[in-house]
Amino acid sequence: MDEQTIARGMQALSLLDEDIAAAFKELGPPSPRSRPAGFETFLSTIVGQQLSTKVAAIIMQRLINLMGSVTPARLIEIEDQALRDVGLSWRKVEYVKRLANAIITNSLDIESLSDLSDEEAIIEIMQLKGFGRWSAEIYLIFSLNRQDIFPADDLGILLGLAKLKGLTEKPTPKQARQMVEHWQGWRSVGSLFLWQYYHQPK
C-alpha cells in the first residue's frame, strides 16, 4: 500500500474508532510496506518461518546465490543437501520443493491470485504445504495490496490491539477479529498501524 492509500485508511479509521484517532494524532501514519508478488516472495516466506529477520535474510541471500536464477525450474534442479547446506531445515527443503513443483505443474497460478477474492486467494495459498492462514494473509497485504485483511494470528497484532484498547492481556484471534469488525474496508491499514503502535515505547 502506498502513502495515499494509508492516509485515506487512517482518516477513515479515525472516524470509526476513537482509540485509533487518539493514537494517530500521537504517532502519525504507518510507513508503506510492500513486497513484490511472485515466486521469490513465496520462497522467502518459507525461509523466514520461525527465524529472526536477520537470520532469514542471510539464508535467503545464500539461497539466491546458490540458485543464480530464482525460478521454480532452477530450484527443482538443486540437490536437497545443497539446500540444506545453505541453512534450510529438511522440512523447509520439502516445502520449497513442493512450492516450485506446484508452480511448474500449474496447481498454483501465482498471477491468477490477483483475480480472486480475498478469501479465495487465501484458500488457494493455504493449499500449499507450509503456508497457513497467516502466511497467506501477509502475502495479500504486502504483495497484492489488499486493503481489508486482518491477520489475527499475528502476535504483534494481538499485543498492539491490547495496548491500543488498554486491555490487561492480549485478546484471542477470534476476539480480535470481533473487536475490529467496525474497521471493515480498512483492516489492512489498521493492521499496519497496530504493528507500529505495538513497537512504540510506552
Rank of each mutant, 00 (worst) to 15 (best):
F131Q: 07
T5M: 09
K170C: 05
L16M: 13
L13Q: 06
T172K: 09
I149N: 09
E94Y: 05
A162C: 05
D109E: 14
W90K: 04
M179E: 03
M126C: 15
G132V: 07
T105L: 06
M179N: 04
S191R: 10
F142S: 09
E3A: 14
T41H: 01
K202H: 13
K54Q: 11
G185E: 06
N65V: 14
W90P: 00
Y198V: 13
D148E: 11
K174M: 10
T172D: 02
E111C: 03
W183M: 13
I104C: 09
F193W: 04
E26A: 12
F193Q: 01
E18Y: 13
I20G: 01
P201S: 13
L16T: 02
L83M: 00
L16E: 03
I78L: 09
A57S: 15
K97P: 01
F24L: 11
Q200D: 08
K202L: 10
T53M: 06
M60H: 08
R74P: 00
G185N: 10
Y197R: 04
G9D: 02
Q49C: 08
W195K: 02
I157G: 05
S107A: 07
Q175S: 10
S31F: 08
E169Y: 06
T105H: 03
L99W: 06
N65C: 11
A162I: 11
D19A: 14
R133C: 00
G48Q: 04
L15Q: 07
I103G: 00
S52Y: 06
L155M: 13
L144T: 04
R8F: 11
Q196C: 06
S31D: 10
D115Y: 14
K92H: 05
I59E: 04
S143N: 03
L27W: 10
V47Q: 02
I59G: 02
R84H: 08
M60L: 13
F150K: 11
Q61M: 14
P30N: 11
T41D: 03
V55S: 14
A100C: 02
Q11E: 15
T71R: 08
E111A: 12
D85T: 12
V55T: 15
K25T: 09
L27Q: 07
F42Y: 13
R177N: 10
T71V: 05
A100W: 10
P201T: 14
K92R: 07
T45V: 06
D19V: 12
L43F: 04
M1V: 12
I20D: 03
E77W: 01
P32C: 12
L167G: 04
L88F: 05
Q200R: 15
V55D: 10
E3V: 14
F42Q: 07
G160W: 01
L159P: 02
D109Y: 12
D153V: 04
R62G: 02
S34W: 09
D115A: 15
F42M: 12
A162M: 03
P201V: 15
L144E: 02
L88W: 01
I103T: 02
L144F: 01
E119K: 14
R62F: 07
L15E: 11
I125T: 10
W134F: 03
Y95Q: 04
G166P: 02
A21E: 14
D80N: 06
K25C: 12
I64P: 00
R177G: 09
V47L: 06
L155A: 04
M179C: 08
R91D: 00
F150I: 13
R146I: 13
I46K: 02
Q49K: 07
N145H: 11
